[in-house]
Amino acid sequence: MPNIAVFIEQRDGKFKKVAWQMLSEAKRITAASGGEVWAVCLGADPAAEAAKYGADKVFTATGDSFGIYNSELWGAALAQFCTAQKPDLLLIGSTAMGKDLGPKVAAKLDCACISDAVGLTYEGGWTVRRPIYAGKCYIDVEPVTDLAVVGIRPNAFVLEEAAGAGAVEAFTPDLSAIEPKAVVQSIEAGEGGRVELTEAEIVVSGGRGIKGPENYALIEKLADALGAAAGASRAVVDAGWVDYSHQVGQTGKTVGPNLYIACGISGAIQHLAGMSSSKCIVAINKDANAPIFKAADYGVVADLFDVVPALTEEVIKLKG
């Protein structure tokens, strides 16, 4: 019976939503196959939420080592946890922190490491489904080691409350031998305020069709009305209209929100690669032949300068 450990990421005591999504999926799996779901958190106590999403046990380690993120300390702590508790899987969200930790822990434990998964099945052994070539193809991967570290893409799994005992067990990793070499000196907030792209449930992106940096505000207004993140095509980023952190695509962020609204984006293969796994795709483009319409569920063939502000108003009305 598989025991699944789920890393509950926190920064400043704030937990990442992907953690609850992973717990939900782990609970669905163990409900069918038996085994337990373990929440593992460094530096904060997630017991209340973790139990709500089905964690059978909650392991927390606290102390000075878990203030600001440090890959060497946190990686060692998670590796020690796995050595002691022997979960079958360690799930880690594919976030900036998770992408840093997963390979580190897997290399320490010399076990399989599978990145950015969107599906997990257990039938005596594990099958992990993940996109490659930025979503142009999917693969099923089977780990051959007893433990596998699996990165999970935010929003891949549906959040679902489930009863879990949530029994809290403190664990005390021994980090006395580690003097971290790479150290975070400070964290600088970016432009901030808005939802982060890779975690967002809705993304509104602007392409070259917005014509200039001043018009990106149209995209941001619609995003704000929807509580969405604001993305961009590479054309917009390379023109210097918005920061690279907004770029969606093969060489930008990969996003898989419930709703993706592409405004003035032609739909180049490299852009589609980064957003085609979105559950619902809307294209607003004045060229009816733009390839983006082939990838979209809903389309409006019109000038974005008319439609986007009007849509923003409609959304405000709907939400109001």
Binding site: Y138, V144, G299, A310
Partner: peptide, 25 residues
């Protein structure tokens, strides 16, 4: 430590539903 068992094409999408209207609003 991990083996690829199968390759899949991405799930096909249905037809795009075009919203037709004279007026953008």
């Amino acid at each position: 430590k991990a083996k690829i068992k199968m390759y899949y094409p991405p799930a096909a999408r249905g037809e795009c539903k075009l919203v037709e209207a004279e007026d953008p609003a």
